[in-house]
């Protein structure tokens, strides 16, 4: 029993680290792309620097990456992990493909949140002599904040799911535990423990995300 607790606890920690780091990295990658997609998009959708050609190429790349099945993307990106971290197995090695897989999703989520910002408000900011940077930082992001928080919540929840899948190919964490112990060694208790913890994590993140977003809206 003691060893099970220890194994589950370790796997949980690994999952938390994996999800935490890949959330950060996928935001670092995806957030600027999302902003770029929004600002270079068409004027009707609130683009402040419309650039149809750039937008079309960027949008295509994002779509292609998003339509890749995650497991295949993982396998394709393994060599990249080996190049950067020196190994293609383990928690840290999983963070890289996870982040890259989630980045296009993040980009779309950010883009669609920014699209919701009232174009009239952006026009007002422009009329007052805001630079494009000021419009992004002082208008678009603050105006879209509650929706951006919901988007990040959704990203984290997706990453929890992805990280469990990543476990299947040697990534560590709760998914790995469920497969190695629960499935391959016929210990259903491990499977159940892993699944329950994942469900609790998802619920918790959703709850916290909703609270923050709700709080931001209630202050308006």
């Amino acid at each position: 029993m003691n060893t099970m607790f220890q194994l589950v606890w370790e796997a949980t920690q690994q999952t938390i680290v994996m999800v935490f780091l890949s959330t950060i990295f996928s935001l670092i990658l995806g957030f600027p792309i999302g902003v770029l997609l929004h600002v270079t998009g068409s004027e009707e959708h609130g683009g402040i620097l419309p650039h149809p050609a750039f937008y079309a190429v960027m949008s295509r790349i994002v779509n292609i990456l998003r339509s890749f099945p995650f497991l295949i993307l993982m396998i394709v990106l393994m060599p990249l992990s080996r190049l950067i971290i020196g190994t293609s197995i383990g928690t840290m090695a999983t963070v890289i493909p996870l982040s890259i897989a989630a980045a296009p999703f993040v980009a779309r989520v950010i883009e669609s949140s920014l699209k919701e910002v009232d174009p009239g408000v952006v026009q007002a900011a422009k009329a007052m002599g805001s630079t494009n940077w000021q419009i992004i930082v002082k208008v678009l992001i603050p105006e879209a904040l509650p929706s951006l928080v919901s988007g990040v919540t959704l990203t984290i929840i997706n990453l929890i799911g992805y990280s469990a899948m990543a476990g299947a190919i040697g990534g560590g964490g709760l998914g790995d535990l469920a497969i190695r112990y629960g499935y391959q060694r016929f210990r259903p208790s491990y499977m159940v423990a892993a699944v329950v913890i994942i469900i609790v994590m998802v619920e918790l993140i959703q709850f916290i995300g909703d609270r923050i977003s709700g709080h931001l809206i209630s202050r308006r």
Partner: peptide, 15 residues
Amino acid sequence: RRKIGMIFQNFNLFA
């Protein structure tokens, strides 16, 4: 643009 003022039908205030 920083030397002119403008107001709108829908106010366009920052929420």
